[in-house]
Structure formats: structure tokens, C-alpha cells
Design a protein around this nucleic acid. Structure first.
Lengths: 219, 219
DNA sequence: GTCTATAATTAGATAGAC
DNA sequence: GTCTATCTAATTATAGAC
């Protein structure tokens, strides 16, 4: 019997109690990272709690179940996306609006790759989580982008991508280096999340997707 | 005590033995699907075995560990990719070579979404599996595509995408509807894996990425 | 609201009969 | 080579002291 196993009658280990008024936000942020890296099944509530120096049952206290924690994390991320994309001004030039969306989308994908990571973990096979995600957060954006793209094609500005596919073409091309950030760090010579790489990425995408655009910088 | 729990002294349930000479391939194919849908941690060897009506220990018999099963599945998938992409003929027209790669890549992504699904499950955070995957299978393709793209840009045929990013832009734009196949089925009106959607996707990508190309069909 | 202890389930791997 | 039985470890959720 080892020394550590002896003292079953010793007083309980005197761990100090950690009260924090922002523990819910800390757990949420930790969950976003773990769900992004490992997916719903792969992430463990123990690991999510320990990442912010909390105990596993605190998750059940603050979020009831792992599924509700996941849902709160996704809501939180999509709220951040909405804020990052900003409001689309109805009267503004459509090409400039689209170019702004591309820039903000790439910047958000680099800053918060977890959103696309979680989306992709869920979107490979049907599930209750995927249905909720699609109905609540994805379809409205899919339809809005399709409308804008049709306008741009009618105006002769946009590349010949089918409007029903532009959502996937744009998001795929804009997010993959950050979705696959650990791989990109192994492949690229520069830091994929650096401002220089992001700028080159954004400028290339805009020029490629809107070949008929009059660049406001050069006009 | 229920009827089912009574007979602990009954003869063992007479399950019929299932010998199959292709069981290794069956397990491999099943593993590809499960690893694609759920990732390495999320997939269970029990579920992989039961999908082809086998028992869980058969996996350890044929592949020793779950990690070696995963590795064999990835090798199998990349061998299929190599076969689908075909050999690049060094003397051929570079623009036609690239257009062929795009078409075959989209078709392969639609037929075998599991390759990109597995890649993305692994590429979000560092791991031994990711390092092996990148060194063995990804980097050679990344470098080859970068070279071809630089040639196309020098010839004035290619869109203004940075050569160090074309790998991600192309693969992201080409594979996302199939990587996220369950979501795409909820969003698109047509079947994302139908020949009609694939053709529109391919034609749009080639025309967008190679705006300076003389389309061999129309010339 | 935080913490320890633990229940209930499930995972990957192994032993040994056949 | 297939199969049952089982080991050990890890999982989420719960009970109850503080």
C-alpha cells in the first residue's frame, strides 16, 4: 500500500473554494474551444471545466446538461458573428456590401475558427443538433447571401457561381485556412492568422468573386 | 427478475459464426464512414464493427488498436483520391490539367466526403495524427498545386489568389457542400450530390478561378 | 454556488473457448 | 479467425455536505 492510499480516514483534502461571478462566461468560452477542437462527442465536460480551473459538476449546475451547454455556446458564437458582420444597409452599394461581408467573414473566421469548426463537426451527419443549428442560425444567412449574389450577377459584377452554391463556395474559400488552423500552421510559412495573410486572402477573394467590380481604391 | 435475467445457467446463446474473407475491407469501409461522421474520439469501435455485423474484438484482431484502424482508413482514402485525380501529364496544357483536377476533386469530394470530413476533424488542433497526416499525405499535394498555380498566374490565366492560399481556397470552395452534406441536404432544393449540382459547381469554379482560360468547348 | 463522492453507462483492449 | 466474457478507465449526471 502506498503512502497516498493509506489515509482514507484523514480529513478531506483542503481544496480552497473558488467563487467567481463570471464562471458561466468562463465555462462558455472554454466550451467553445473544446467543442471546436473535438466536436460534441469528443469534448468532455471534465476537460471543459478544468480548462478554467472549475469542477465538472459546475457545468451541470450552470447548464443542466452537456447538450444545453453546447447550445448556449453556439448561440454565443453566432451572436458574435452577427456583431462582427454588422448590419447590411439596404440602400448601400451591393458590391461594396458584399466586399465588406467577405472581409469581415474572413477576419471573423481567423479570430474565432471555432464557429466553422463546430458547424463542420455537426454538418456531416443528421442529428437533432444539426436541425436546430440549420433552422435557427444558418438558413436565414444562406437565403440572404443567395439574394445578394443574384443581384450582383444580374448587374454583371459577380463571377459565374450558381446562387444556390455561393454560400458554400464563399464560406469554404474564406474559412478553410482557419477551420484547419493546426494544419495550416504546419503547411504555410507565414502565420495563417496574421494580418498580412488575412489581407492577401481577402483581397484575392474579392477580386476573384467580383471581377466586374470597380475597385473603390483605384477609381 | 425478468424472464431474460433468469437463465444465467442456460447454454450460451447460439449465435452463428460469421466467417468472411473480406472482413478487413468491410471493417475499413465502415471505419471510414464512422470516422468521417464523428471523428476519431467520437467514433466507437463497437459501432464500427456492428455496422458490418461483426464483433468489436475483431477490430483489435485485424488492426490491433483503434489508432491503427484510423491510420489504415486514411491511407485507403488517400489511395482512392490519388486514383481519382489521375496522373498529371507533365507535357499537357497547364490550364486543362488544372481544370481536370478541379472537376475530379469536386466529383471525388461528392462521392467520398469522408476524406475531407476526417481531414477537418483532425486539422483543428495539433496531434500526432495530424502531423502524420500532413507530412505523409497533404504537404506534397499542397506544394504541387502551389507550383501549378504560380505557372497559371504567370501565364495570365489564373485569378488573383495568393499561391500559398490556393490550396485552401480551392479545396474549401470545392468540398464544403459535400463535407457538410447533411446540412446541404437541409438547405439546397436539389440533391447536393446529384450530377446536375456537381456540374454547375465544377463549371462555376473553373470559370471563376481561370478567367483567362480559353474554354476548349467554345473555341 | 462550490465541492467531494459516487452512481450508471460506455469505451478500448484482452483472455481464452471454440 | 470468431466469439463470449470481462477488465480497466473514462464518461455524464446526481446526491448531499458545506
Amino acid at each position: 500500500m502506498t503512502q497516498a492510499e493509506v489515509g482514507s480516514d484523514r480529513p478531506a483534502p483542503p481544496r480552497t473554494r473558488r467563487d467567481r461571478d463570471n464562471i458561466r462566461e468562463l465555462l462558455l468560452e472554454s466550451a467553445i474551444i473544446e467543442f471546436g477542437e473535438k466536436g460534441f462527442e469528443g469534448a468532455s465536460t471534465r476537460s471543459i471545466a478544468e480548462r478554467v480551473d472549475a469542477h465538472q459538476p459546475q457545468i451541470n449546475y450552470h447548464f443542466a446538461t452537456k447538450a444545453e451547454l453546447w447550445r448556449a455556446a453556439v448561440d454565443h458564437l453566432f451572436a458574435q458573428l452577427s456583431k462582427a458582420l454588422g448590419d447590411l444597409e439596404p440602400g448601400a452599394d451591393v458590391a461594396e456590401t458584399f466586399a465588406n461581408v467577405v472581409r469581415r467573414l474572413v477576419e471573423f473566421s481567423a479570430a474565432r475558427p471555432q464557429l466553422h469548426q463546430i458547424m463542420t463537426h455537426e454538418s456531416g451527419s443528421p442529428s437533432e443538433r444539426l436541425t436546430w443549428l440549420t433552422d435557427t442560425h444558418v438558413r436565414p444567412r444562406y437565403l440572404e447571401l443567395r439574394t445578394i449574389w443574384t443581384q450582383l450577377q444580374d448587374a454583371g459584377i459577380a463571377a459565374p457561381i450558381d446562387p444556390s452554391l455561393i454560400h458554400y463556395v464563399l464560406i469554404g474559400a474564406a474559412s478553410l485556412p482557419y477551420l484547419n488552423i493546426a494544419e495550416a500552421r504546419l503547411l504555410l510559412e507565414a502565420d495563417p492568422a496574421s494580418a498580412a495573410v488575412i489581407d492577401r486572402h481577402v483581397d484575392g477573394l474579392i477580386a476573384t468573386l467580383l471581377p466586374g467590380r470597380t475597385d473603390p481604391i483605384r477609381k
